[in-house]
Amino acid sequence: MSVAHRVTGTGLYLGTVLIAAWLVAAASGPVAFDTAQAIAGSFLGRLVLFLYSFSLIHHMVGGLRHFVWDLGHGYDPETRMKLAKFTLVTSASLTVLVWIVALVLR
């Protein structure tokens, strides 16, 4: 799970290039923005967005676990196992929930 935190963190790090590119496209005018939206809305674009949203939410929930440890709790094997399961289940469900909300609202 520690490795997962690093893997998702690295993914988020590299993905900031895409977010910055998307913002710069929005600032460049309607033509560039429509191109960026078309890429983001394509199958590949949505796949990347889905993985990115999962990485972000997983990293956030995994980060909560680090707050628990920073406060000096949850070091025993049983709690660590519970926290790991909690991270996986919560981040997967939250990602699906976010996508349902996004698809319903658009």
Binding site: P30, F33, D34, Q37, G41, S53, L56, M60, G63, L64, H66, F67, V98, V101, A102, L105, R106
Partner: peptide, 23 residues
């Protein structure tokens, strides 16, 4: 990490609000 936790939730909200919107 604490500020990101709050701001990222807002960011996700903004991205959802922007999804598929015209320019």
């Amino acid at each position: 990490a604490v500020s990101n936790l709050v701001l990222a939730i807002i960011f996700i909200g903004v991205v959802i609000a922007l999804a598929g919107r015209p320019y």
